[in-house]
Amino acid sequence: MQTFPTLSTKRLVLSQPTVADTEDVILQMNSTSEISENTLTLPFPYKKENADFWFQMAEFSFQKNEAFIFGIREKENLKLIGAVGLHLDNSNNKAEVGYWLGKSFWNKGYVSEALQKVLKFGFEELNLNKIYASHFLHNPASGKVLEKCGFVFEAVLQQEILKNGKFYDLFRYCILKSNY
């Protein structure tokens, strides 16, 4: 794929994040420390250099056909409010999906709406066989989002992640193309 795709839902536009989104990304990432606490690698507080690195990583990963990182935007103003990414494992025809959303946009169904569109893209455009996701035990809302989108619980990965000096279990979910 030469050009980064833009996806659209009823309320959202999913498009490639760019340096023009720097202020929005920093604002949303710093809306609560819970975003960092509920994700594997995102820091808090989130700084401009973090955003710069993220934009470069998103562009480089797309160019190398390793990931599609979509900025989540409300259609009405196109401000970036979050992100959803497909991180490809091309040799196994699968991808890991991850997402985050600014706190003032929680509990509005935005992540589910974005995730459903990304699943469609992954299965229908990229012809993936499996899409999987993980969440920490202390973030059950993420599991509810995954279940709402058709994912099934797959396993508990014990002490899978070392974060801030502590080991954490991950709950792993997946959806297969045949069940999509």
Score class of each variant (00 low, 15 high):
E66I: 03
S91Y: 07
L7S: 08
P140V: 00
G102R: 03
K48Y: 02
N164L: 09
K148A: 03
L119F: 02
G150S: 08
Y168G: 06
K48H: 07
T39Q: 12
L78V: 04
Y110P: 00
G102Q: 11
V13F: 11
G71R: 08
A67E: 07
W106M: 00
L170E: 14
Q159T: 10
G85K: 06
Q116K: 15
N127I: 00
N107K: 13
V84G: 09
S104K: 14
M1E: 06
V84A: 08
F123P: 03
I175D: 06
K144L: 11
E59Q: 13
Y173R: 04
Y132A: 02
L137F: 15
L7M: 11
G71Q: 10
D52F: 00
I81H: 08
F123I: 04
S31M: 00
E49D: 14
Q116I: 07
V156I: 15
T9C: 02
Q28S: 05
G71A: 15
N93M: 05
F68G: 03
P43K: 07
E96P: 02
V152D: 10
I72C: 04
A83P: 07
L176R: 01
V118C: 07
A141W: 01
K75L: 12
Q2E: 14
M29L: 15
L128R: 10
L126K: 14
N139V: 04
F171H: 15
R11P: 03
L88Q: 04
E113N: 00
I175M: 07
G122F: 01
A83I: 02
H135T: 03
S178V: 04
